[in-house]
Simulated assay, not measured.
Amino acid sequence: MTDDIAVRAEDLTKFYGTRRGIEGLTLEVRTGEVMGFLGPNGAPGCRGGPTESHA
């Protein structure tokens, strides 16, 4: 596995209406890693974005 960073996000905040759900999220996903978010009921919390995967 490589140490190349494929995705970097810093200090993200997500609001649901007027309610803050996430504040100050910082993360890195390296090439070859798989990452996802799950909601409180275990359902994926990501909407949109890439839909194609590469092995």
Rank of each mutant, 00 (worst) to 15 (best):
M1H: 05
M1D: 07
T2I: 03
T2M: 07
T2W: 01
D3R: 14
D3K: 14
D4Q: 02
I5M: 00
A6W: 05
V7S: 03
V7A: 04
V7T: 08
R8I: 06
R8P: 04
A9P: 03
A9C: 08
E10N: 15
E10F: 14
E10V: 15
D11W: 01
D11M: 04
D11L: 02
L12A: 13
K14M: 13
K14A: 13
K14L: 14
F15K: 05
Y16W: 13
Y16L: 13
T18R: 14
R19L: 12
R19C: 10
R19M: 12
R20F: 11
R20Y: 02
R20P: 11
I22Y: 00
E23C: 10
E23P: 01
G24F: 04
T26E: 11
T26C: 11
L27I: 00
L27Y: 00
V29N: 09
V29Y: 10
R30C: 06
R30H: 03
R30S: 02
R30A: 00
R30Q: 03
T31G: 03
T31I: 05
G32E: 06
E33K: 09
E33H: 10
V34C: 09
V34I: 13
V34F: 11
V34G: 02
M35R: 02
M35A: 08
M35Q: 10
M35T: 08
G36E: 02
G36Y: 07
G36W: 10
G36K: 11
G36F: 09
F37V: 08
F37T: 07
L38P: 01
L38R: 01
L38M: 06
L38S: 03
G39W: 06
P40R: 09
P40G: 06
N41E: 14
N41W: 14
N41D: 15
N41Y: 14
N41P: 13
G42Y: 11
G42T: 01
A43H: 14
A43R: 15
G45P: 07
C46I: 15
C46E: 15
C46F: 14
C46S: 15
R47L: 11
R47S: 08
R47G: 08
G48N: 01
G48A: 01
G48K: 02
T51K: 07
T51A: 09
E52C: 08
E52F: 10
S53D: 13
S53V: 12
A55M: 02
A55I: 04
A55E: 01
